[in-house]
Design a protein around this nucleic acid. Structure first.
Lengths: 222, 222
DNA sequence: CTTAAAATTTAGTCTTGCCTAAATTATTTT
DNA sequence: AAAATAATTTAGGCAAGACTAAATTTTAAG
């Protein structure tokens, strides 16, 4: 039997990929929350994905779900589509990084491999999308990311922003207005151990950032 | 109740638009053939479209189906998407007019109005797609087409190719190789009343074209 | 005008992928 | 370790949109 690769399947695999990046299986509930689908439905779908031939996920009752090599490849394919599309919408149609996610979310499921190759080539085979997220390679490997969460820096450390792991348009617009975008140099000047706030200097301006922000910004320490 | 605008709905409306351009209702069978769906299924779907509030089509048993103003608007929206996408794939990603149809067929259902506006603007609000087909305006009106089918020309008439009404990649590649593309000047030198073949001069070369081709090429007579 | 053929519709099924409610299993608390 | 809570699964349903087979209507041919 051939593998059925519907929009729904692709969404499940993509979310499972993201949730299992930490090395642990994805729980039904977490997956349900990410997909905005009721947990009962997720159980059913996950069982189906596990029953595919070849299986797309490995699933054990009450123990969460992980991707099989086949499932992982399918997930990376979708993620590659998504990130190339985001890059390309920003570069060629003037989208901002805040607007781009939703559009890519729909396009990622319908573009051909030909289309993928064409935009990759037109963009010069980029390795990161507008948020700094790594783009899986054409042969579907995810490059290793050696960045550090901003939240782990301490006063007197300088770094370059590499990646901002967020899609919420409001947050992204906020970060834009603070100048906190990939490529930018920053320096940590203060740290509060009570609330884990960091004071971060961007150019001339200093901003006090909470954990909610500093755990989503990933940097390369200089 | 809000109108449900699924991929399937959009495909039905688009095909009905095309089939009713001649002024006659679209028959169940013709629609089934165009959509590659069994006639029995088409009947069911058409009944549903007619039952929508507001109705998308007008349907009378055994008498075919036509679009309501609402349905027509929805159809033109999809057609505008399709033709803008084709134009844009050709202009910015180097697709040939033969390759472009299939890709646009999938993308047309998922792009946002924002995306539509952006590519329209980037292309300079084109009025025709790569095949010369007219693009519905932003306010969803179809410009009137005053072209003539090549099949109706006779010897000694000269014309400019405006539009080629075909999607079959093989046919399009063939026409490409003969130089029969929009914008090109031609002259009819011979006509056979037996098989309706026309001999058409393109540049230096003369080609004998059958009805199958000459009814799909539309020209402006000089 | 009657019959044969073609087109269309009806009736009943299936698959996908979601939902709710209820049951079950795990995890925490006390 | 029992009870309470949280997470998960099972069971049963539903809507969309397709299909097949059978019935019906229309059209075309003799």
């Amino acid at each position: 039997m051939p593998i059925t690769m519907t929009r729904s399947t692709q969404d499940y695999l993509k979310r499972i990929y993201e949730l299992t990046e930490c090395g642990l299986p994805a729980s039904t509930n977490d997956l349900a929350r990410e997909l905005d689908i009721k947990p009962a439905s997720v159980t059913g779908m996950v069982q189906k994905l596990a029953a595919e031939e070849p299986a797309l996920v490995e699933y054990h009752k009450h123990q969460g779900v992980t991707l099989t090599p086949t499932g992982k490849r399918a997930a990376l394919e979708v993620i590659r589509h998504h990130r190339l599309l985001e890059t390309w919408l920003v570069q060629t149609l003037g989208y901002s990084w805040a607007e781009v996610h939703e559009e890519a979310e729909r396009l990622e499921h319908v573009i051909s491999e030909d289309f993928e190759r064409r935009i990759a080539a037109a963009l010069g085979n980029p390795t990161r999308d507008p948020h700094g997220e790594l783009i899986p390679t054409e042969d579907l490997n995810m490059p290793v990311d050696d960045t550090t969460p901003l939240s782990s820096l301490r006063p007197n450390q300088s770094a370059t922003i590499q990646r901002v792991n967020a899609q919420d348009p409001n947050l992204l617009r906020h970060l834009d207005s603070l100048g906190l975008t990939p490529g930018i140099q920053i320096e940590v000047t203060e740290y509060s151990s009570f609330d884990n706030n960091l004071t971060v200097k961007v150019g001339q301006k200093a901003n006090v950032l909470g954990l909610n922000i500093t755990t989503k910004i990933f940097v390369e320490i200089k």
